[in-house]
Amino acid sequence: MPTDVVFIPALLCDEDLYRDVITIAGDAIEARVMISPQSSLAASAADILSQAPPHFALVGTSYGGNLALEVALTAPERVTALWLMGCDPAGPRASDPDLASGLIAQPDAVIDSLAGLVVHPDATEAAARFVAMAHRIGGHAGAAQATALAARREVTSRLGMLHMPAMVLWGKNDAVVPLAIGRALADDLPHAHFHVLKDCGHLPTLERPVEAAALFIEFLTHEQHHHH
């Protein structure tokens, strides 16, 4: 039986963020990509839980990782496994840029500047795919996501509640959320494996889909054998 997997994209990203990984995984998974741009993580989590299968593995990148943590903390009994990338479980920082108002006022400029940050500098195709996704999502939906991110509560202190197996995957060159934050996240989760991808930025499934998919399939297979 394929594993039900819910994929939550990063800020301003759609299903193309995970398209290659889903294709490589093939019949091993039953994939659903869920986007719910509400102005609070709790509202998006409730929406996703109302549409998700009864039990599912959960994948989230960046903002989508923060949302995945919110989903998992809200309904830990439904989440069978967790794959997180590029997300910071701490609360917002005073130095965080005001993405929400930028995305309303000057979406193109903000999207272009983010494209330079989110992927490894050499990953021009990945950057172009990010820009295309961002224009499909649009400034208003992106602003709602940014608002939710800016209002998030810290969850570091609650990570011990998440007993499902977890995989934490980081791009070594993540310019948005440093590698040390990923390592600490993996340390704080009770059952997490930590992996680093070289020559990779903030969006591993877009930049390094073959390696990312192989790690994910190995993780899911191992966990199923472990549980049965």
Rank of each mutant, 00 (worst) to 15 (best):
Met167Thr: 12
Met164Ala: 11
Leu206Trp: 02
His227Glu: 13
Val71Arg: 04
Thr156Ser: 14
Trp83Ser: 11
Gln38Asp: 12
His163Met: 15
Ala68Asn: 06
Arg19Gln: 13
Ile8Gln: 09
Leu215Cys: 06
Ala94Phe: 08
Leu197Val: 08
Ala90Arg: 14
Leu162Ile: 08
Leu149Val: 08
Arg93Thr: 13
Pro121Trp: 01
Cys13Asp: 09
Ala45Ser: 08
Val6Tyr: 02
Cys87Asn: 07
Ile29Asp: 01
Ala57Gln: 01
Glu77Val: 05
Met1Asp: 07
Ala90Phe: 10
Leu206Asp: 07
Ala143Met: 02
Met161Ala: 15
Thr205Phe: 00
Asp27Phe: 01
Asp14Met: 08
Pro178Gln: 15
Gly139Val: 06
Ser36Trp: 04
Pro53Cys: 02
Leu220Cys: 10
Ala128Leu: 12
Asn66Met: 11
Ala90Tyr: 14
Asp199Leu: 03
Ala192Val: 02
Ala57Pro: 07
Ser62Glu: 07
Thr61Cys: 15
Cys13Val: 05
Ala214Cys: 04
Asp16Gly: 13
Ala144Asn: 14
Ala192His: 08
Ala127Val: 04
Ser62Ile: 09
Ser62Gly: 13
Pro97Phe: 05
Val6Pro: 10
His226Asp: 12
His225Val: 13
Ile24Gly: 00
Arg78Ser: 06
Arg152Ala: 09
Asp174Trp: 00
Asp174Ser: 03
Arg208Ile: 00
Pro54Val: 05
Leu169Phe: 04
Arg208His: 13
Pro53Ile: 01
Ala141Val: 04
Ile8Ser: 04
Leu169Cys: 10
Ile217Asn: 01
Ala46Phe: 02
Met133Asn: 11
Gly201Phe: 06
Thr80Tyr: 00
Val131Ala: 08
Pro54Met: 02
Asp112Pro: 01
Asp27Tyr: 05
Ala72Cys: 05
Ala10Asn: 14
Ala31Tyr: 07
His226Val: 11
Gly160Ile: 10
Asp96Trp: 15
Arg93Ser: 14
Arg136His: 09
Thr74Arg: 09
Pro2Lys: 06
Gln51Cys: 10
Ala151Asp: 10
Arg19Asp: 03
Glu15Thr: 12
Glu77Trp: 09
Ala212Val: 09
Met167Tyr: 11
Ala146Thr: 01
Ala180Lys: 11
Val119Ala: 14
